[in-house]
Write a protein that binds this DNA or RNA. Structure first.
Length: 108
DNA sequence: AGTCGCCACGAAG
DNA sequence: CTTCGTGGCGACT
């Protein structure tokens, strides 16, 4: 499987997200030094390390769900929410209920 | 090799 | 709500 260095960075950063917390595409992008969260989204969509990387812990910057397994909505997203709630992250009406659960990557 | 279009976003209008 | 900007990648030429 061909994995570009950029994607490697993305997966590595996502792997750093602790259980019970979530990160935003923007946060990941900023952390790896990329100004385009969309690139991160693409990388996760193409995520060759599906179970290895907790892509379900990555949400949109405005605390909406974002997508999962290639869909921005549908059963996959439903599963994503359930997983997050399983880890202690609550969602309400498709949005993160507790914003303080957003992980800040070292926050510097 | 270069070029085009697409994307699970974000900020601005 | 809609539109533009941005960065990177797959597919086509």
């Amino acid at each position: 499987m061909s994995v570009t260095p950029f994607q490697q960075r993305v997966y590595d950063a996502v792997s750093l997200i602790p259980v019970g917390q979530v990160a935003t595409y923007r946060g990941v992008a900023d952390q790896i030094g990329c100004g385009s969260p969309r690139a991160v989204g693409q990388a996760l969509k193409r995520n060759p390390f599906a179970p290895k990387v907790p892509c379900h812990r990555v949400i949109s910057a405005d605390l909406t769900l974002g997508g999962f397994q290639g869909d921005i909505e549908g059963p996959a997203v439903r599963r994503k929410v359930r997983l997050l709630e399983s880890e202690g992250v609550s969602f309400r009406e498709g949005r993160l209920a507790e914003p303080y659960r957003v992980y800040k990557f070292g926050r510097k």
